[in-house]
Design a protein around this nucleic acid. Structure first.
Lengths: 267, 267
DNA sequence: ATAATAGTGTCTCTCAGACAGTATGTG
DNA sequence: CACATACTGTCTGAGAGACACTATTAT
């Protein structure tokens, strides 16, 4: 009766448990042409062959969840995430490379989806991740996917956001993208993560257009500027300027702050 | 080469995938004696026998994740969650029964933990849930656990919250509880979920003490009252009063609002 | 009476929304 | 020049922090 832990572990039988698979799916969001967009792959194999889906796949034996998300993203889209230093469990900023060129990126866990019949192959639990990246050239397809491209959120059928027309996605990926967009909208209110959508240096106009694309509505330029500059650590001036369609603008880089106190609330 | 989806599914072999188990763990938070507290069970079997842990266990074959969380909670603590109507995928309010007496409750997914060696038995992915319940009598142990009790958060060793002294928890449960507390603190800022910690009718003093317990600092009574009453749909007066240690107080019930605009920010 | 909590009123400061106006580039 | 965008200044109203004061119970 009084069994040791070693004895217990030796006798433990994993085969007695239900057969489940664990996958990760990654929602890579970016802003391009003034619109919020998501990176999708067209499925080369069954199930849902030919339909558009989130990049993702099965988690391997001794692989962390974040690690699996990064690996699948690379395999299917060519997008490479470089982890700066250890601590892979939290949603801290990461650096992203596409075909060698380095950009900002942010990766965090979104939510886990486990409805029993969501995958026709077997019981699959999917841990969804959310990444914010700066605008980048269209990636190339990896080994597991036929085609890769960014889709504007407005061109997808996402019931939760009230968009019923548009391209239908595989599995429950429309729901996942919808949750990701809502998370992104909320994150922009309370954190400085808008800077993850722009290049390393950026103008306040570029930063404002990120907010406008994610929230889907125009912001007042002067008030936005006042708000951003009055929040310590949100952005720091670099001293250089960048040309625009009008007067050249000061360039800024991301500051040390992570959370916005007080937040910038959606209008 | 051009295989039908039926053929593909018939040939699909789940045994080729790594062997993984999926569990749910539930962080039940409540406020008792002015302190934020969490429901823990003392483990009756290996691994971590004798240590305190979150209620939870393996997800079964055709069972949704939310459903598994509720079932494990009941088996280990006697706490029964009644789902009001369908729609079990989102973090909407639910009703909770302990030994027959009904109370409010709220259940939502917290985050998924999947570090490769977090469970010595095998690779285990745990989907953690977060529940807010009103103060209730101590539950009784269920079949799978020796002892059940609420622990004040301040009496646990939670590194992320800066508490290094106190009871150590099994697995990575200290990290999970820490994340849950941070989520709860944040939710009280932006949502009306503080009402999930009190009875169906409550005084503004009781509601304020929820905020004070979760945030760990006193709030200004008059300003809190003004803020809550000026937010439409946060609370509605019932017309009756309740005795206190001083002047009797008006009773309120939860209103229809879910999110707070603008939020009540932590001091 | 005092203690304790509920509830009201008000001053001030910060800050967001609105808007006007100036600055500096391009065609 | 017109046009586009960057940037500055100011008015106003909403709301949070601080504080004083009144109300209603128990002991």
């Amino acid at each position: 009766m009084s069994e040791s832990e070693e004895q217990f572990l030796a006798q433990f039988d994993p085969a007695a448990l239900p057969r489940v698979a664990v996958t990760t799916d990654i929602v890579v969001l970016t802003v391009r042409q003034g619109q919020l967009a998501v990176l999708l792959v067209q499925r080369a194999g069954h199930p849902f062959r030919g339909m558009w889906a989130l990049p993702g796949g099965f988690v391997e034996e001794d692989e962390g969840l974040d690690e699996a998300a990064r690996r699948e993203l690379t395999e299917e889209t060519g997008v490479v995430l470089n982890v700066p230093r250890g601590r892979s469990t939290e949603g801290t900023g990461e650096s992203l490379a596409i075909h060698g060129s380095h950009l900002h990126a942010h990766l965090e866990q979104l939510r886990t989806y486990g409805r029993p019949k969501r995958d026709p192959r077997m019981r699959v639990i999917s841990v969804a991740y959310l990444a914010f990246v700066a605008e980048a050239p269209h990636p190339e397809a990896g080994s597991d996917a036929a085609t890769v491209r960014y889709w504007a959120i407005d061109d997808l059928a996402l019931p939760k956001l009230g968009q019923r027309r548009g391209t239908k996605l595989a599995f429950d990926h429309a729901e996942i993208v919808s949750d990701a967009v809502e998370r992104a909208r909320s994150k922009l209110e309370y954190t400085t993560l808008a800077t993850a959508f722009v290049d390393e240096t950026f103008t306040l106009g570029e930063l404002r257009r990120v907010y406008e694309a994610v929230w889907g509505q125009p912001l007042h330029e002067g008030n936005f500027r006042r708000k951003v500059l009055s929040t310590p650590g949100f952005v720091e001036p670099t001293g250089s300027v960048a040309p625009t369609d009008g007067r050249p603008a000061q360039l800024y880089r991301k500051g040390g702050a992570t959370r916005l106190h007080p937040p910038i609330l959606r209008p």
